[in-house]
Design a protein around this nucleic acid. Sequence first.
DNA 1: CAGCTCATGTAAAACGTTACATGATTAC
DNA 2: GTAATCATGTAACGTTTTACATGAGCTG
Lengths: 188, 188
Amino acid sequence: MRSSQTRTAVLGALSIEPMTGYAVREAIRGTLGHFWSESFGQIYPTLAELERDGLVERQGGARTGSSAFALTAAGRTELRALLAEPPQPGAPRNGVLLRLFFGRMLGPDACAELVRDARDRAEQQLTALAAARADHDHVEHVEDSPYWLLTIAAGEHAARATLAWADEALTTLGALTAGEAGPAPSDD
Amino acid sequence: MRSSQTRTAVLGALSIEPMTGYAVREAIRGTLGHFWSESFGQIYPTLAELERDGLVERQGGARTGSSAFALTAAGRTELRALLAEPPQPGAPRNGVLLRLFFGRMLGPDACAELVRDARDRAEQQLTALAAARADHDHVEHVEDSPYWLLTIAAGEHAARATLAWADEALTTLGALTAGEAGPAPSDD
DNA sequence: CAGCTCATGTAAAACGTTACATGATTAC
DNA sequence: GTAATCATGTAACGTTTTACATGAGCTG
C-alpha cells in the first residue's frame, strides 16, 4: 500500500468533487501545492489501489479517456479515519540552512547571495498566496472556505517569517564582509 | 553515488572536526537536527564512498572500533563545491496543513486539537533553540559562530510564526465551533 | 556480570521521482 | 491538419528508512 499520506491527499482531493486522475494531479500541484506535493507517478497507481479497495469508483465510461473518480461511502469513511491519524512530521531538510551552517567554508558574500535567493522565493510565495486568497473569494465550496483560509494564512506567516529572518541575516552577513575587508583581522 | 546533499552534510560535519561515523550521526541528529536529517543507514555507506573517493581518510587504527574520519584536501575542495551548488528545495509536505485543508471532514474541534499540537511542538522547538543558543556560547569554533547563530535564528523565526498562526487559527476555529453549537445550521 | 552507550556495518523493503509510451480531444 | 492540452498508465531508477546483526568498552 502506498503511504497513507498519499492516499489521504488523493481521497481528500476527490472529497471536494469527482475528478479525473489528471485533475487530481492538477489540484495537488495547484491548490494543495503550497503545503503538499505528490509526484506524477504516484497518483494513478494510488487511484487504481483505491478503486480496488472500493474507496473510489469511476463515473462515466472507462472506455474513452475521461472517467472521473468519485468517493464511495467507504472512501468517505476511510478519509475521515486517515485525517484523524496523527500527522507524521517529515524529517526537516532545509538546503539553505545546511549551506549556511557551513558558511565559513563559503564566505559571507556567497552566503548573502543564498539568503537573498531565499528572500526572493518567500516574496514570490506571498504573491502566490495573495492570488490564492483572491481566487478563493468566488469559490462555491462555502463549507471548505474557512479551512482553506487557515492553510493560506499558515503559508503567509511562514513566508513573512522568512522575510524578517532574511533581512536580519543580511545585516549580520554585511557586517562580516565589512569586518573582513575593513580593519585588519586581529585575531583568529 | 548518494545524493550530493547527503555527502554535503557528512563532509560538512567532518569539516568541523574529525569524527567517527557514530559521532557524525550524533552531530547530524543533534546540532544539524533543527534543519537537517540523515537516516542511520545512509551515513556509513556515504563515509565508505567518500573514503573510496579520497575525500576523507581514517585516522587511528581501523582495527579496534573507533577510527575517526578526517577531511582530506580534496574533501575540503569538494565540500566547497557542493556548498556552492544551488540548494534543491525539497517538495513541501506539511501533514498538519493537509489535514486542516480537509478540515470540513474532521470538524472544528479535531482541527483545533491538531493546531494545538502544532503549537506545542513550536514551543518545544523554541525551548530547544534557546538551549542551542546557550550551548553555543562556550564553543571553541569562533569562525563558525555567526553562521550557526543564523541557522538558530531561522528556526526561531519559523517557530514564532507557527505560534502566531496557531493562535489566530484557534480563534477562527473557536468561532466555527460556537457557530455550529449555537444557531441552528440552516443550510448544508 | 548485566546493561548501557559507543561503534560499524548490511540487507530488504518502502518510498518517490523521472522518463518513457500512448492516445483522445480541443483550439487555432 | 497540427499543435497544445487532457488523459492514462508503466518501468526504471535512485533515495531513504527500518530492521537486523555484531561486538567492544565502560559502569554499577
